[in-house]
Design a protein around this nucleic acid. Structure first.
Lengths: 192, 192
DNA sequence: ACCTGAACACCGTTCAAGT
DNA sequence: ACCTGAACACCGTTCAAGT
């Protein structure tokens, strides 16, 4: 990469972060280029799609979340590990407004630049869920895709002004469903 | 209202329905006017905002949902009434893509043309919830706003291509949390 | 009273022309 | 190699001018 290209790339990332914090995942790409002092074509050259820019902005967080899933799996009790990680997931997706919806679209779309990262996160959650299920600490009639949907819905609720203030409480309610209350004290109880 | 105005209004509603079914709640208003064979200003005269158009399109469904809440309250067991109504709510919001997000925004925004209808629905759900709680059939640490958020999240999930197919299952999971399993068999159990 | 559509200020995306 | 910005096809919203 030429030095000027490298400089532009980094400047676009920095500016992108600022603008996406301000305007959310649907931020004006024109505005990003403008504020980065760069031609519109330069932005598109470095980030061929909106998802590509977001992926670059989120890469570090994606990596952190995946690493923490592994740590939790090694160090925490199954139920705790799952819940702590889900909470981290919600906190993470709160960095940028509207990123939740994009991730939900990306996980179905192989072409999306966010696809791989979303699949990776779903996999990380899936492992924590399976472990909790094996320990009898999570309801058995769920898989990683269900978990991803539920945590994404929670992240979405945390993004909505009318429910953001009760996001923690809503988290607890859904968490109680995932943890299948009563399952450990009465292993014979199944889904209704 | 002048006869030509009346005709335009109805034509806009019919066309609006078609276009919103096609494109979702964020449909192009220009397109609606164009396909209705009407000037852009005419659309804005009859529907000063996107929400006003959606409100007109949804009015009938809003009324039906409210009426059914009353019926269920009179005729069904508390838990059944609540669950059936929540299911109807999700089905209703599935008519138009993206309407869920708009409703979530409208319930906080007194200026929105959808505000009153959303508040009414929240109230209807709230009553069903209170009744179920009084019967010991729903978890006590929730109110109508929590319920509205949860059912809206379910409606949102039903709108996302990656979770639409499992919408029923996700509904059951969240419903199980609302119904506070074990509460009736052990009234002493409280929120964790 | 009501309708029309040009006008304004924005988008995303592409691509010929420049260095 | 890389950058630029005009060009194209769209938006939402307003409002002067028409009937």
């Amino acid at each position: 990469m030429r030095v000027d290209a490298q400089r532009n790339y980094e400047h676009l990332l920095d500016t992108g972060r600022v603008v996406v914090v301000e305007q959310g995942a649907e931020a004006s790409l024109r505005d990003v280029a403008r504020r980065a002092g760069v031609g519109l074509g330069t932005l598109y050259r470095h980030f061929p799609s909106r998802e590509a820019l977001l992926e670059a902005l989120l890469r570090e967080s994606f990596d952190k979340l995946a690493a923490q899933a592994a740590e939790l799996e090694a160090a925490s009790a199954p139920a705790d590990a799952l819940i702590v990680w889900l909470r981290d997931f919600v906190a993470f997706s709160h960095i940028y407004r509207g990123v939740t919806e994009m991730m939900m679209a990306a996980i179905e779309n192989t072409e999306s630049a966010l696809h791989a990262s979303c699949v990776r996160l779903r996999g990380a959650g899936s492992q924590l869920l399976t472990r909790a299920q094996a320990a009898g600490a999570a309801r058995p009639d769920m898989d990683g895709t269900d978990l991803f949907a539920l945590v994404t819905a929670l992240a979405w609720l945390a993004d909505q002004p009318s429910s953001a203030a009760r996001a923690d409480h809503l988290f607890d309610i859904i968490a109680s469903a995932i943890l299948a209350p009563g399952a450990s004290s009465d292993p014979r109880s199944e889904s209704a």
